[in-house]
Design a protein around this nucleic acid. Structure first.
Length: 403
RNA sequence: GUGGAUGUAGUUCAGUUGGUAGAGCACCUGUUUGUGGCACAGGUUGUCGCGGGUUCGAGCCCCGUCGUCCACCCCA
């Protein structure tokens, strides 16, 4: 038996229904916010992710499905969605238009990691990217959209926000932080010691409690933001307050990807194991230029489908369609013209084997049909069909033509 | 990459100090030979993950291997 690869999963029945429900709900809401669908390749040049996600990130450093294809191209299965959408945006030269573009997408992402709860090697994201809008109103609007989606899906969450600064205020802060961390280096965990050189900002969200204790007096970026970043962050908080959206400020919230600046936010759930982030995003005003486009402000987010899968409250399933069957072999063929006609407007299940009435009723019940129509011996004789509504239990015998 | 659990029927799991497998659910049949969901009765289903070892004998003990789950790292 051939099983799926490690960290890859088939979705069927309840799970696939949940998947579809999540995608349709999110898509519907994204469209209301003015977003249109974009589909980009799953396979891209490795250079795209190195330049956008950043070589210092674990994603690029050790988690990519990277290989050389038959044309000797260095390629990767996409580990996240934003890079591809930005590349598509630049490839289509939309950066030369003085217009705003908003795209939503969904699909599989790939990261070569050890699977655990809420983390797969092939997983799915639903995401949105808004280009050309530098206003913090857009950051707020995007957070509202995610809220609408989770509310529609019946998912509970907490929102955490932070500001990551911009090229004007982040580098000086980073230097201050490195200086601070270097002083207490010996008291930090081994990972953090390493991070001081590789990615000092990451020390801030170390899960190690003793490290966290040492960080209470660390320099805070929020108090060193430049004037623009500071006023944008204040505005974002006010907008959220005015909209009655609850949030907490997490100064240690660091997005895992290098391209974020200014607003960063995360939606978390405490019901799904160690991987608590169910959506994350933020502003990335410099990424379009990094990928050879004209400077274009942008903001976006992604939702982890698998992480919210079991949190979703599904709409009640209603009985639907007709179950068609016959009790004798000679009547089976008569079912197909009926099925064909009925399928123009509703779901039809045809049972090809002749069975007793009881067996048919059981099958119809299991198929979730709303009604059952059977040609039995009696009906066969005078061109009729027996029809029963499985909910109201009303039944009648009518001519096939009439049905 | 590191650590901890675990692998027995379609599924969830039991299986005592080693004596070659069992329950619930599901499924099929019947009670009701033309009336579903409920109830009752009966029935089908297994390379006990795989490979080796110990033993008269291994689902159980030992070694290896593969898979799964959970956690770390990191992230959606």
């Amino acid at each position: 038996m051939i099983n799926p690869l490690k960290g890859m999963k088939d979705l069927t029945f309840d799970e696939s229904q949940r998947f579809v429900h999540i995608i349709t709900t999110a898509s519907t809401i994204a469209k209301r916010y003015g977003y249109s669908y974009i589909e980009t390749p799953l396979l891209e040049q490795t250079a795209l992710f190195k330049r956008s996600v950043g070589e210092s990130s674990d994603i690029v450093g050790k988690e990519m499905y990277q290989f050389i294809d038959k044309g000797k191209n260095d390629v990767c299965l996409r580990p996240e969605g934003t890079a591809g959408v930005v590349r598509a945006f630049v490839s289509a030269k939309l950066d030369r238009q003085p217009l705003k573009y908003k795209f939503y997408y969904y699909g599989p992402m790939f990261r070569y990691e050890r699977p655990q709860k809420g983390r797969l090697r092939e997983f799915h994201q639903f995401g949105c990217e808004s280009f050309g809008e530098g206003s913090v109103y857009e950051d707020f609007t995007i957070i509202s959209m995610i809220k609408d989606i989770f509310d529609a899906l019946g998912i509970g969450y907490d929102i955490q926000i932070n500001s990551l600064g911009c090229p004007a205020c982040m580098p000086p802060y980073r230097d201050d932080l490195v200086a601070f961390l270097s002083n207490i280096k010996e008291e930090l965990c081994d990972d953090c010691k390493r991070r001081i050189d590789t990615n000092p900002i990451r020390v801030l969200d170390c899960k190690n409690k003793s490290c966290q204790a040492k960080l209470t007096d660390s320099p805070k970026l929020l108090s060193q933001l430049c004037q623009e970043c500071d006023s944008d962050f204040e505005k974002l908080k006010k907008l959220l307050d005015d909209a009655d959206i609850n949030y907490s400020i997490d100064t240690n919230l660091v997005r895992g990807l290098d391209y974020y600046s200014k607003s960063a936010f995360e939606f978390v759930s405490n019901e799904i194991g160690a991987q608590s982030a169910i959506a994350g995003g933020g502003r990335y005003d410099k990424l379009v230029e990094f990928l050879d486009g004209k400077p274009t402000p942008a903001v976006g987010y992604a939702i982890g489908i698998e992480r919210i899968m079991e949190l979703v409250t599904m709409p009640k399933v209603e009985r639907e369609g007709i179950y068609l069957g016959a009790m004798s072999q000679e009547a089976i063929d008569m079912l197909f013209p009926i099925a064909s006609r009925k399928r123009q407007e509703q779901k039809v299940t045809v049972e090809y084997a002749p069975k007793g009435l009881k067996a048919h009723l059981k099958s119809a019940d299991r198929a979730g049909a709303k009604s059952i129509a059977i040609i039995g011996e009696d009906e066969l004789k005078d061109g009729k069909i027996w029809v029963k509504d499985l909910e109201t239990k009303e039944e009648k015998v009518i001519t096939i033509k009439e049905f």
